[in-house]
Design a protein around this nucleic acid. Structure first.
Length: 773
DNA sequence: AGGCCGACTTAGAATTGGTAAG
DNA sequence: CTTACCAATTCTAAGTCGGCCT
């Protein structure tokens, strides 16, 4: 690789020839390894996985009524199409347009509020004049199943795409009511102190001060960058009105009075009666109502984040240079609305105008604005359960499944290219290895005004250590400044390559100096249409999960055990590693419970030896420390409660509790200390009189389950930092794997997905139990 | 050909709300 | 009945990546 051409940095070199394309799909993969790189138990479990029959996963039958309808175009869509809206692309750069011809759309929006659905629309329309009747039918139905909102079952339609050939057009008609602005600021008048003296602020300045005050007890408020940025922007606001006092030093500011006020407010809110709470909730719902749904081609869809983000202090993660910067209030003048030509344009708040009203049919956003801190765009999109999101979600997984056909070849390719003499190619191959095996992100370059985090392509010298003969030790901050720390054994050639690259670039520089995410993705795209680095994460997560699930599930197990297998499969998606701390605490609890049983019924000692078994994790030394900790925490708790009470008394104008009272209360902690010590010595643990053996056993079972769960989570988090359990479920693991598993083994889907996930993954729910990723 | 912009997915933190424990 | 805990949900920051512009 010391080819002279080879040593020039990327930007100085002439374009190399295009990489060898891999276009031929490989048959079906049986023994591909996926990312839990641990010499994945070579267990040949290919048999089950092997025969993937795809292509025909279209739903068999469905909904006779709909079929009778001849085509599946919902009525509303037909209506629109017939009234002249053409499908041709709208000029891309959005330009201002006046709203003409809103009448029909307005009417349709109103109408559709009461009912819109491909199937029901027919009947509903007829009942137009008899609204109450419609409502009645709905209500009676509601009795059975909580207002089962009719959903557009796009995944059951035959030829959705291709319909008009242009898939960059996302909609024909689009109706919605815009966005909800946060309420105006209401000054509270609480005076904070400067240099020990109460000061009066204009509402504007008070608002910003309050943003900070609210965070007083969080880490943000202690972060110097946060303080600095906040203070700078606050001073700017202060200066705008001469009535504000001069505030020169952050350290002389005392925000506590405002913080206390907020605490009190919270308290009051909690104390509110049920009726009051109910009323507040109803009010909230009422203001939200208009924004909850949009109509896309006449179909009702839930809107996601229709609220304009309220002003606040920017909470950047990690070491973000701009953290604490004032995020300004967004005015309607900054907000662009995207909506159908003929739809009624939502009214901006009185006295205001929208920045722009766009009709961009290639976009799925309903509204957008530019945020002042980083200059990035914010969008209002439909909710995760919508057709738009669902379709792209499914496409994502289909893309990952497609990768199955290519992955073998791709792996062969990059393995060969690890030795390529062109270092650009070699770097690419090495990076591919890391992305494939360890699920690293692509790693775009970042600017100085962002937190310094990296991904594969942007890894620098100090992020990877070489431990001969072939171990790489990663230690870097990834997305969200989450630390990725992992030591892995790699192919000897990968080890050598990293060593060479590091040597070439030196400390402080990017290891892959001739590789960019763009270059990498271009290459991947030449291997398979639509392939990019992130697909590997999806592919590996889903693939591994499917494999593990097949391997671990015992068909004859009861549901609870199957759930265990399911969760374990989720865990196996990551690698085993040290994950002590939390688990020890649980084991300790478990041990205590067992001893309670034995104390209660010493006869069991012989019958159930497992009850007296010692856990090697629970050393004397550890327990002493742990118990000391427990006692300390208890003391803290007592003190805090005491202080809180006093604060309240003070606020109510009463006199505080005496110190002696606190002393008295702290005795409880001392007793606890003595008790724990005795228990440790004697091994006898008394329990509450209400306890019995059965209850204790149940409790043990519970902690057992918890321990297992913790192992699952810890492994996932610690080891594979990048993929936390819920996240992988939500974003990386093809939901159809779970659905098929549930069907096959008769496990209710609710055991596996929360309500929102069930909604989000509705598209994945009508596959049959033999479906494989 | 590279940099920036825009739109969209992925992600952890913060908040809410339901429920078990006290 | 509170309270404390945890799972679910909401919020918005932080990525990815393609396309457009220069």
């Amino acid at each position: 690789m010391s080819d002279s051409e080879d040593d020039k940095p990327l930007y100085k070199r002439v374009a190399p020839k295009a990489p060898t394309p891999i276009q031929t799909p490989v048959k079906i993969e049986t023994h591909d390894q996926a990312f839990p790189q641990k010499p994945t138990n070579s267990s040949a479990d290919g048999s089950k996985v092997a025969n993937v029959k795809r292509s025909n996963d279209r739903p068999v039958k469905r909904n006779v009524k709909q079929e009778a309808d001849q085509d599946n175009t919902p009525l509303a869509k037909k209506r629109k199409q017939s009234n002249g809206t053409t499908v041709k692309k709208e000029s891309k750069p959005v330009k201002k347009e006046t709203l003409a011809d809103t009448t029909s759309a307005a009417a349709s929006l109103k109408r559709s509020v009461s009912s819109t659905t491909s199937q029901k629309a027919t009947t509903a329309k007829k009942a137009k004049t008899a609204e109450p009747a419609v409502k009645e039918t709905k209500k009676s139905k509601k009795a059975k199943e909580e207002e089962e909102e009719e959903v557009y079952r796009w995944w059951e339609e035959d030829s959705q795409k291709a319909e008009d050939g242009d898939d960059s057009i996302k909609w024909t008609t689009l109706e919605h009511n815009g966005v909800l602005f946060p309420p105006e600021y209401v000054p509270h008048g609480v005076k904070m102190k400067y240099d020990g003296k109460p000061i009066t602020l204009t509402p504007e300045a008070e608002e910003v001060a309050s943003f900070f005050a609210a965070l007083l007890e969080t880490d943000h408020a202690k972060n110097p960058t946060f303080q600095k940025n906040f203070f700078r922007d606050w001073q700017e606001v202060l200066k705008q009105d001469p009535r504000n006092p001069e505030i020169k030093e952050f350290d002389k500011c005392d925000f506590r009075p405002i913080w206390e006020k907020f605490e009190l407010d919270k308290e009051k809110k909690k104390q509110a009666t049920k009726e009051e709470k109910q009323k507040a909730k109803e009010e909230r719902m009422k203001t939200e109502e208009p924004f909850l749904y949009a109509y896309v081609d006449g179909r009702k869809e839930k809107v996601g984040n229709f609220r304009i983000e309220p002003p606040s202090l920017f909470r950047g993660r990690g070491d973000h240079p701009k953290t604490g910067t004032l995020k300004k209030r967004v005015t309607p003048e900054q907000v662009t609305i995207n909506i159908g030509h003929t739809a009624k344009v939502p009214e901006p708040p009185a006295g205001h105008k929208w920045a722009l009203v766009a009709h961009d049919q290639t976009a799925t956003w309903l509204a957008t604005w530019k945020e002042n801190v980083n200059g990035s765009f914010k969008y209002v999109f439909l909710a995760a359960s919508s057709a738009w999101k669902g379709q792209s979600d499914m496409q994502k997984f289909e893309k990952a499944r497609e990768l199955k056909k290519y992955v073998k070849k791709i792996r062969e390719n990059y393995t060969a290219e690890l030795r390529d003499k062109l270092s650009e190619t070699r770097q690419r191959a090495t990076a591919m290895y890391l992305i494939d095996r360890f699920a690293l992100r692509a790693g775009n370059e970042k600017g100085d005004d962002e937190a310094d985090t990296v991904g594969c392509c942007s890894l620098r010298y100090e992020h990877v250590d070489l431990i001969p003969p072939n171990t790489l030790k990663f230690d870097f901050l990834g997305k969200d400044s989450i630390r990725y720390e992992n030591s892995v054994d790699v192919d000897i050639q990968v080890f050598k390559n990293i060593k060479i690259f590091k040597k070439q670039v030196g400390p402080g520089h990017m290891i892959f100096d001739r590789l960019t995410t763009v270059g990498l993705n271009k290459y991947l795209n030449s291997c398979m249409k639509g392939l990019s680095a992130k697909v590997f994460r999806t592919y590996n997560a889903s693939h591994t999960f499917q494999q593990q699930l097949d391997k671990l599930t015992v068909p004859t197990d009861p549901i609870s055990d199957k759930m265990l297998s399911y969760n374990r499969a989720n865990r196996e998606v990551a690698v085993l590693c040290n994950h002590q701390r939390t688990i020890r605490a649980l084991k300790y609890q478990n041990m205590k419970l067992k001893r309670q049983i034995l104390t209660l019924e010493p006869a069991l000692k012989k019958k159930k030896p497992e009850l007296s078994a010692e856990d090697p994790d629970l050393t004397e030394e550890w327990m002493i420390e742990y118990e000391a900790n427990l006692v300390e925490k208890e003391r803290e708790k007592i003190k805090q409660k005491f202080e809180k009470q006093n604060e309240k008394l003070k606020a109510d104008g009463e006199k505080p509790l005496p110190e002696s009272e606190l002393k008295e209360r702290l005795k409880a902690a001392n007793e606890m200390e003595a008790r724990l010590k005795k228990e440790r010595k004697t091994g006898k643990v008394a329990c509450k009189p209400t306890m019995n053996v059965e209850k204790l056993k149940a409790a043990i079972e519970k902690t057992d389950a918890k321990i297992k769960m913790t192992i699952v989570q810890e492994t996932d988090k610690e080891e594979n930092k990048e993929i936390a359990l819920s996240t992988s479920k939500m974003n990386y693991i093809d939901p159809r794997i779970s659905v098929a598993w549930c069907k096959k083994y008769n496990v209710p889907l609710e055991k596996v997905f929360s309500k929102t996930l069930i909604e989000k993954f509705r598209w994945a729910q009508n596959i049959d139990d033999s479906w494989k990723f």
